[in-house]
Design a protein around this nucleic acid. Structure first.
Length: 963
RNA sequence: GCCCCCGUAGCCCAAUCGGCAGAGGCGCCGGACUUAAAAUCCGUCCAGUGUGGGUUCGAGUCCCACCGGGGGCACCA
């Protein structure tokens, strides 16, 4: 294959520069090299073993680098210029690591199940598989033109039957597991469910009702086992979204109680659904955040979502039994002057008395003649409120007295029990001990309902607020048995917990905000559950040999949706409408029998929970991933840190998945680790959140968006005005999108500038993690850079290579090696913007020379290669090299050339620069001080004043402090 | 309301440990080339770092308060 010279059919407007690097020439070069890479398999990444091992078989000995993008969801709208930002960054990083000698694994798969794909299909009246596949091929086309160095053999889509098979297989491993909380020294570990059966059989573990295992019939046993599975069916309150026709996970519901997708109202309904026991992993999910290299912001969001809080469970005696509360402040128990239950609390009915007891204050009754009436009324009102209403109605404390009292175990006082909607059934035990002295909400409630307030922490003398939640010594906290008085908060908590444990009225405990993951959806376009039900209506796993369970073709795959606020409707899965698929005859070991399939599908998060493993071993049909491959690519790296959890070396994506995909994927990965399918404890070791590319949009006087491309800007002094068709328009800033008429696509950029220019521009706009506005007119700067680079190597008029084979001059050598050093550092830190500015600097330096030395030109070309790979290949080839620049070693700096012969030493007087000295880098403090004091400018500045002090930071600075 | 991040030139952005505010790009202006324009090339201009305090010999960088922008959480006991 001849890659060099000639063959340019490029039409250029100006005949005198036929070999100028224009967008036309870029297009020709780029597509030619893309074809070459594909044909040659330039970016095929060898595995150490197996089908994808190379002939040398030496890959396993090489250092590896596994990097990933959050894979795309192929929408019908195609890409805009914001989408490739992360892909370009990972591509440049991968190319850089490869040139540094690493075995780089980088590929791109497609996340293709899910609601938007299904909705797009419904809109266009086509099968989701068809539209999804079309969207994928369009996206592939757009991305191929970008020149990404992916291993094309390792691509796949989550909808591929071969992929679905293993998604379902992992689901069944989770289904076939339980969590043994005592394993691994109390940290807990998922174990095969058969081990649980063995423990019941051997009576090592007691059955829930105490009967011996042998005394239970088969169905009873199955029910017990099913209750312990990590994937289980439960009838519990779930998020029902009539507008979408499906239930949703907590993570998919916004704080306003609406669906994250579509923004429809969501209602709590008790429904039978699949759940994943992610709560079993709450501690490990929190603790292991300390072992991975993620942005603190994302770690904080996960910690917050999991919401671990340590405290105590305390039992208060009442006439109808014990009432348990959770508190993080057991030290304030002496200040608990009343109790509050969520209106939905199961004990409310029993606690509600017929008549108001003696001493009931007016405020407690809400004007009702009896607690029964007051409670009934309050509960009805609370039940009718949606979450949104609770939200918008502010935080005025409401509630009523139940007529009952509880006994404070510390003070022995009888304290009134209220119900109020500021206590939530979904957290803790749904009941609190109210300590108004140390809790703002309780203080408000106490004020409103005329309840006693006892401070049990001494606020500072200057504290003039109400509830005091800060640190301080305990007060008013003693009985005959125990005194906390004088103790700080932490020791007081411990003392109280010990005392409660001795008394048998409480214990230290931990609660979490995290709930189990609701895993079933009533939609068509997702993985079917590999589950059937028998005559007892209990779930049975479909054997691995029968996987994948494929989606049936259905006449109508659109889900049954309802009016968004039709809360009392029922989900109706599309798969339930295909009786011939639902009813199935199978031989599961005891002869052919009729079964009923599960008609739910998995949420689209399922596919993204394990795709990192499929990149490693994309064709494996025997196991989810070859353990040897997983160990090589993802295994723990003890040289990185002690107790390293392993995982993908670099994972780049937006921050929007902080608690959805990233939490779910960590959970699945830990289950697979517990069951010994993987050696890594975390899926993604280093996470980087890229920023977003946003864009300006313009509205006219009617508020309508006008095409941003055609808006003209004019600057008049300090005034900047924008006009469209000579009419003034108003500028806004936001996302790029059709409705805002401000979309710029990669295709536009390829046509106008070429992929390399586009890549350079995106990488040079600013730091990767910062969002910034797109500015098409600024792209030309990147084209000019590549044009100058081209001109430094190739004569624009003749096409001849013009580099000079003699050694570079010393200045050029210094500039070159400083650039190499800086670019390496910047690339390692994903600081492409500064790396590129260094390359431009070097390039500009070379431009000023009469002839460009070959050593500088070649180093520059190789350093440009990660960001602008096509032009680099072309120039590398024209410089006379065979093979791809992608595998050339990245230049190394010569340390001798990094130190200057002289440095400028700044001389300050009183912090102001007064002189500059050219000194050798080795100049000593004493020499510098002497030189500085001898300076005429310094003496002038001192103006006769004595010198109080001289600060020397050799060799760069001397500061003379006058008296 | 609480927590986190960010404010440097007309614009996008640089500035190791606190040590000369400017690397790179866009734009503007001037010049070269051109019949002209575009493209290209060369050159120039532009801020004292959101505001107010503090620490320091010295602050864009550290501390405090406030203002502006972005994000997260939000009655979680």
């Amino acid at each position: 294959m001849s890659m060099s010279q000639t063959g340019h059919s490029t039409v250029d407007q100006s005949d005198d520069v036929p070999y100028r690097y224009t967008s036309e020439m870029a297009a020709e070069i780029e597509q030619r090299w893309q074809d070459h890479w594909e044909a040659e398999g330039t970016f095929h990444t060898p595995n150490p073993v197996g089908e994808l091992a190379d002939s040398s078989g030496e890959a396993g000995a090489r250092k590896k680098y596994f990097l990933m993008d959050m894979f795309p969801y192929p929408s019908g709208a195609g890409l805009h210029v914001g989408h490739p930002l992360g892909y370009i960054a990972t591509d440049a990083t991968g190319r850089f690591r490869r040139m540094c000698g690493d075995n780089v694994l980088h590929a791109l798969a497609y996340d293709a199940f899910g609601l938007p794909a299904e909705q797009y299909a419904v809109q266009t009246g086509q099968h989701p598989r068809k539209t999804t596949e079309e969207n994928i091929s369009n996206m592939k086309r757009q991305l191929r033109r970008l020149g990404l160095a992916h291993d094309p053999r390792r691509t796949f889509a989550t909808i591929d039957p071969e992929y679905v098979r293993w998604t379902q297989w992992i689901f069944l491993r989770i289904f076939d597991s339980w969590y043994d909380p005592e394993a691994d020294g109390g940290r807990g570990r998922a174990r095969p469910i058969t081990e649980l059966v063995t423990r019941f059989e051997s009576s090592e573990r007691a059955t829930p009702d105490g009967r011996p295992w042998a005394a239970l019939d088969a169905v009873e046993r199955r029910r017990i086992i099913d209750d312990h599975r990590l994937a289980y069916v439960s009838e519990s309150p779930v998020n029902w979204c009539p507008g979408l026709g499906t239930v949703l996970a907590n993570e998919e519901v916004t704080a306003e109680g609406r669906s994250e997708r579509g923004n429809f109202p969501v209602f709590k309904r008790r429904l039978r659904q699949w759940m994943m026991r992610i709560t079993a992993y709450a501690d490990r999910l929190v603790d292991d955040l300390d072992r991975i290299d993620w942005p603190e912001k994302v770690k904080a969001m996960q910690r917050n979502w999991i919401g671990r809080s340590e405290g105590a469970a305390i039992r208060f005696a009442t006439d109808v039994g014990e009432l348990e509360v959770f508190t993080t402040r057991p030290d304030t128990l002496f200040g608990a002057t009343f109790m509050v239950l969520a209106p939905e609390h199961p004990l409310v009915e029993a606690l509600t008395t017929e008549a108001w007891p003696e001493g009931t204050r007016d405020a407690w009754t809400a004007g009702h003649t009896s607690p029964t009436e007051a409670v009934a009324q309050y509960r009805a009102t609370a039940a009718a409120k949606t979450d949104i209403e609770r939200q918008t109605e502010g935080r005025d404390k409401t509630g009523v007295f139940t007529g009952s009292f509880a006994t404070n175990p510390a003070t022995g006082a009888r304290i009134p029990v209220f119900i109020a909607d500021y206590v939530l059934m979904g957290y803790g035990t749904g009941a609190i001990m109210a300590v108004p002295g140390q809790d703002e909400r309780d203080w408000e409630f106490a004020e409103r309902f005329d309840l006693p307030i006892v401070r049990t922490v001494q606020p500072p003398a200057d504290f003039d607020g109400k509830a005091y939640v800060g640190a301080g010594p305990a007060i008013n906290s003693a009985n005959d048995d125990i005194s906390l008085d004088g103790m700080d908060v932490e020791p007081a908590k411990h003392a109280m917990i010990s005392w409660l444990e001795e008394q048998g009225s409480g214990s230290g405990t931990v609660t979490y905000r995290l709930r189990d993951w609701l895993f079933s959806r009533q939609r068509y376009w997702g993985e079917p559950f590999p589950i059937v039900y028998d005559e007892h209506d209990l779930p049975i796993a479909i054997p691995a040999r029968l996987l994948p369970v494929e989606l049936p073709d259905v006449p109508d795959y659109s889900p049954k949706t309802y009016e968004p606020d039709a809360a009392d409707t029922e989900p109706e899965p599309p798969l339930a409408r295909v009786p011939e698929w639902v009813e199935v005859e199978l031989d599961l070991g005891d002869g052919p029998k009729r079964y009923r399939r599960d008609t739910n599908t998995m949420p689209n998060w399922a596919g993204s929970c394990w795709y990192h493993l499929r990149y490693l071993d994309p064709f494996n049909d025997q196991q989810v991933v070859d353990p040897e491959l997983e160990r090589y690519w993802m295994g723990p790296q003890p040289d990185r840190q002690p107790n390293d959890p392993g995982g993908v070396d670099l994972y780049v994506g937006g921050v929007e998945h902080a608690v959805l995909h990233l939490l779910y994927a960590r959970f699945w990965h830990k289950v697979l680790y517990d069951l010994d399918y993987v050696s890594s404890e975390e899926p993604y070791y280093r996470l980087f959140n890229q920023g977003y590319i946003q864009a300006y949009a313009y509205t006219d006087s009617r508020g309508q968006y006008v095409p941003a491309e055609e808006v003209e800007e004019s600057v008049d002094g300090a005034e900047t005005t924008y006009t469209y068709n000579n009419q003034p328009v108003r500028r806004e800033y936001g996302k790029m999108g059709k409705s805002l008429k401000n979309v710029v696509t990669p295709d536009d950029m390829y046509a106008a500038y070429g992929a390399d220019t586009f890549r350079v521009y995106e990488m040079s706009m600013g730091p990767l993690d910062v969002s910034r506005p797109w500015e098409t007119r600024a792209v030309v700067g990147s084209l000019r850079f590549l044009q100058r680079l081209w001109r430094n190597v190739v004569d624009e008029h003749t096409g001849e290579v013009v580099v000079d084979d003699d050694d570079a001059d010393i200045t050029t050598k210094r500039v070159l090696h400083r650039t190499i050093d800086a670019v390496r550092t910047d690339m390692n830190g994903l600081r492409f913007n500064t790396a590129i500015s260094r390359l431009i600097e070097l390039n500009n330096h070379l431009t000023k020379l009469d002839r460009v030395p070959r050593e500088a030109a070649e180093a520059l070309v190789t350093m440009v290669a990660p960001v602008a790979p096509h032009i680099a290949e072309e120039l590398w080839s024209r410089l006379g090299h065979g093979g791809s620049v992608a595998h050339v070693t990245f230049p190394e700096p010569d340390p001798a050339l990094l130190v200057d012969e002289t440095v400028t030493c700044v001389v300050q007087v009183g912090g102001k620069v007064r002189d500059r000295l050219e000194v050798p880098p080795s100049a000593s403090d004493a020499e510098l001080e002497e030189l500085a004091l001898a300076s005429a400018a310094v003496q002038r500045a001192l103006d006769g004043r004595a010198v109080r002090k001289v600060i020397v930071r050799a060799p760069k600075l001397v500061n003379i402090v006058p008296a």
